[in-house]
Structures are given as C-alpha cells and as structure tokens.
Design a protein around this nucleic acid. Structure first.
Ligand SMILES: Nc1ncnc2c1ncn2[C@@H]1O[C@H](COP(=O)(O)O)[C@@H](O)[C@H]1O
Ligand SMILES: Nc1ncnc2c1ncn2[C@@H]1O[C@H](COP(=O)(O)O)[C@@H](O)[C@H]1O
Ligand SMILES: [Zn+2]
Ligand SMILES: [Zn+2]
Lengths: 217, 217
DNA sequence: TATTCCGATAGTGAC
DNA sequence: GTCACTATCGGAATGAG
C-alpha cells in the first residue's frame, strides 16, 4: 500500500491503534493527532464512511456535510483550547500592546477566532478525506520547509467557513502548488512580516513570536 | 580594494611577491601560477603596461598585441610541457587505442595541440588583463562547480587563435553567462560524454580519465 | 565569469 | 505524506587607520 493511504487504518480500524494517536472515534469519524504536527496542536478529523473517505474535500464538503460534522469540529477545537489552557500562560509584556492576546486563554470564542484554523488543503496528499484543525502558532520541530508553512498560510488552505466553494475555480494541482507553495512569500502569521523565501529566518522568528506570547505553566 | 583587483600586485610589483606564484616577470609581463588552478597546470600572463592591464581582452587583443606577446605565450606553454614531462608518464593500456596520447610527452607540438589551451574568458572577473594558459586535464581540487568547468570548456573561453574577434558579436555579459555557464551541459573534454548538470559525476569521471592516461613518474 | 559560507531548491530511494 | 542523503543552485560578504 502506498504512502497516500497512511491514514487508512485510522478510518477503518481506529480501535486497533495502540498509541495515543486516536483521541476519539465513533461510527462517523475518527479524530487523531497529526503524526507530523505543524503546530503545538494539530488534529485531523477523518470521516469513516468509505464513500466519503474516498472523496476529494473540495467536491464533497457541502452544507449537508458541514452540518453533519460541525459538532466534531467543535470537539476538536475544544480539545485544542483545553490543551493550551493546561499547558500555557499568556505572557504580558509592556511592549506588546496588541489586545489580540488579552484573556485569549480565558475566552474560548476569542481563542478560536484568533488562534485556530479549520479547513482542508486544496491539493491533499493523503487519499483519505481529512479536515485539519490546527492552532495558529506553527511552533513545531516538524515544520521543516516552505511547503509545510505555506500549506497552512496561503490560499492553499481552504477554511471550513469558505466551503463549499460553489463552483469557484482553483486551477490545476500543479498551478496551485506553484502559486501557493513555491512562489508565495513566507508571511509571519503573527505580525505579517514578509520573509520572502527565507525559511530559516522565519523559523527563528516564529520561535521568538511564540515565546513572546506564551510561557509554560 | 575589491576582489576584482586581486591580480593587481602581480602587475605592478611582481618583485615584491614572496611566494612562488610569480614564475617570470620583465618590463612587459608577469607570468604567474593561477592561485586557484582549475587544472594540473594553470598559468596567467599579465601584461604590465597599465593601459593594457586596464583593457578588456576582447577589445585590446589584436594582431599587434598577439605579435608582441606570442613569445610569452610560448614560454608559458613550455613551462607546462616541462611540468608534465617531469611529473608524469603516459599510461599504456590495451583498451585505450586512442593515438592522441601516444608520445604526447615526447612531442611538444602534439602536446600543445591536444592538451593545452590558451585564451581568455569572454567575461573576465578579474579587472587586470590576463591570458589563461592551462593544461586540458581539469584535474584539480580547485575545480569546484559547473561555472569553473564551463568557463574553460564552452564558447565562454575564447582561444588565442580565434582572436581578434573582428567585430563578431558576443551578446551581453548576462546572456553569455546564462548560455555558457549556467545552461550549457557539462561535456567531458576527454571523451565528449554529456553529464548534463551533474557536476559531481563529471568530477569523478575526470578523476578516472586523468588516472587512465597519466601516472606519476 | 575571484572564494567562501550558508541556505534554498531539487531528486532519490525507502519494502 | 515522512526522513535521510546527496547535490545543485543561489545570494551575501569579502577590507581595514
Ligand atoms: N502516518 C500518519 N499518521 C498521521 N498523520 C499523518 C501520517 N502521515 C502523514 N500525516 C499527516 O497527514 C496530513 C496530510 O495532509 P494533506 O494530505 O496535505 O492534507 C499531514 O499533515 C501529515 O503530517
Ligand atoms: N589572488 C589571486 N591570485 C592569483 N590568481 C587568482 C587570484 N584570485 C583569483 N585568481 C584567478 O584569476 C583567474 C581570473 O579568471 P577570469 O577573470 O575569469 O578570466 C581565475 O582563474 C582565478 O582562479
Ligand atoms: Zn512575526
Ligand atoms: Zn570522459
């Protein structure tokens, strides 16, 4: 079986997985920790119906789908919020007047609005349908290159709220990858600073950004 | 002073150079060992007249110039021939029927015809006018990239015998560089095998080629 | 088409 | 998609009273 089916077991037999990858499953979905998380907290929601699992996200996610899975999305979001509440404190510093961070760990709606993204990759690599639910820190040793970062911080990522696309054209897979993953500049998701193609500099900067806002409890 | 003038001292004050870089000088020229030789033997002839030294080789090398410096070219060639005679023997092998190598270290004319190239780079980096006199083995640790190799093995290198150009157009510096140094495939100068852009493979192959033809005395 | 350092980009093979 | 490895390609600094 090829690597494109690396998620298949989580769909067909979540109960057989021995490690702590699977955090929830029922007849409709499995919710798992991404094995190569690109942020502090990175979950995947995998519909278990084979027909759905085989489908392309931009083709299959419609109002009915969203209604059916909305509660699982909220579940995953809650998991991320709790994880941050338990692990981190917000740092208060004089030179950071940005009110975005005030009480973010006490106000779930604010946390979600500012710090969680839910959606799909416009060109998924894994064959089994999955929805990313990820914190917007991108503070992770698994974030190793431009493609990783831009897959969550450009139009390559399609938000749950922007689905369904209602026939909006996306271009070919190759065009999408070139435009968003290769050619698109690296923009810091905290401060919008442009790092051009300097991934190493962005990595160092993300480390600073994260540590300026969060500290371990 | 910038790196473009790294050769200046050899022009103005060869007598002050302490190491063995300068192998000859008089009022008209300095002949030096290239400090980053791209072959076993790589010499530079530097006219010492300031007016000449400041000039671009394709603009200043005419019949009169060639006549004036021909004897120095021959001197440099002799130096290379003697160097090979003293250091190497030609290997005789059954599977190498190529007569190019027969007696090449005993017949200077043949050696020069087949194994020495004299000329200039169409876009020199060093500001002081210099003529390359180099053995055609390209067996050197200083030969480190495609640019190095192609600068001696494509139209980027203009042979002494092809000068003056008599108004032949060369394109802009940038065009020359793109065509000959970046885009031009790597071709083995011994057997013409095409190495595309695989410089590392070419390096290993050049090592084999050299060792198949030469051995230390 | 100076050198050197560093990093971005690209292709490979993985049972 | 991952990782490890190799190699190609690309920019920046280069000095110094
Ligand atoms: N074996 C695996 N187990 C869990 N997650 C994986 C595995 N292999 C890859 N992933 C993740 O699956 C996601 C697939 O993303 P994509 O197909 O681009 O939407 C990536 O975030 C990978 O890190
Ligand atoms: N400091 C130096 N002393 C002697 N030769 C040098 C020095 N720096 C560079 N070179 C050589 O000068 C040559 C300049 O070649 P080019 O300007 O391309 O015709 C190259 O072959 C270099 O290896
Ligand atoms: Zn930032
Ligand atoms: Zn060859």
């Amino acid at each position: 079986m090829s690597w494109r089916y690396a998620l298949k077991n989580y769909v067909t037999s979540p109960e057989t997985v021995n490690d702590d990858t699977v955090i929830y499953f029922d007849d409709k979905v499995s919710i798992i920790r991404d094995s190569f998380p690109k942020s502090e907290c990175h979950l995947l929601i995998l519909p278990r119906t084979m027909q759905l699992s085989r489908s392309h996200p931009t083709k299959v996610i419609d109002a009915k789908f969203k209604n059916e899975f909305e509660s699982y999305v909220n579940s995953a979001i809650d998991h991320i919020f709790r994880h941050f509440q338990e692990k981190f404190r917000i740092k208060k510093s004089d030179d950071d007047k940005d009110p975005c961070w005030d009480d973010i760990l006490k106000d779930k709606n604010k946390f979600v609005r500012n710090f969680v993204q839910v959606g799909i990759h416009s060109v998924p690599s894994m064959a089994n349908l999955h929805i990313h639910v990820i914190s917007k820190d991108f503070h992770s040793v698994r974030l190793k290159n431009k493609k990783h970062y831009n897959s969550f911080n450009t139009g390559f990522f399609i938000s749950w709220d922007d689905l369904p696309l209602n026939g909006k054209k996306l271009g070919t897979d190759k065009e999408i990858e070139t435009t968003y993953l290769k050619e698109h500049d690296l923009l810091c998701c905290y401060c919008q600073r442009n790092f051009s193609n300097k991934f190493s500099l962005l990595k160092k900067h993300l480390e600073l950004e994260f540590n300026s806002h969060f500290e371990l409890k």
